[in-house]
């Protein structure tokens, strides 16, 4: 059941809801107070690539037989696949389409 205090509070709330508080630079102040984006150090990428390289060489040295087996099997698999001009053209078209679509999506997102 509503009483006079209920009515009074609701009327006051309705009145104050209509009073929009203008931004007046508030958003800009908030954005300047946000912590800076964490930038990855420049040396990180080459170090990660070098570590992967070291790991690959380590595997090749530790198990040369396994690496040779994998390479031989991969070659056999690819060599037995029948290749036609139409197949190559289809694959090229698919690659070009996918690259174009990715580039368009990236451009759209960058300009949004």
């Amino acid at each position: 059941m509503s009483d006079w205090m209920d009515d009074l509070l609701r009327a006051d709330a309705n009145a104050s809801r209509d009073d929009y508080i203008a931004d007046d630079g508030f958003t800009a102040r908030v954005m300047s107070a946000l912590p800076a984006a964490a930038a990855l150090p420049k040396w990180r990428k080459p170090v990660v690539a070098a570590l992967w390289g070291v790991a690959a060489v380590g595997v090749a040295v530790a198990a040369p037989g396994a690496v040779l087996d994998v390479a031989r099997e991969a070659y056999r698999l690819l060599a037995t696949v029948p290749v036609s001009i139409a197949g190559i053209a289809g694959a090229m078209a698919a690659i070009v389409t996918a690259t174009g679509a990715a580039a368009a999506a990236y451009t759209l997102r960058a300009t949004d």
Binding site: Y20, I21, A22, D23, F26, T27, V30, M31, L34
Partner: peptide
């Protein structure tokens, strides 16, 4: 951050 700025603008009042 532009998306977050839009959220701030929407809800600041």
């Amino acid at each position: 951050r532009h998306a977050f700025a839009e959220l701030v603008k929407r809800h600041q009042s």
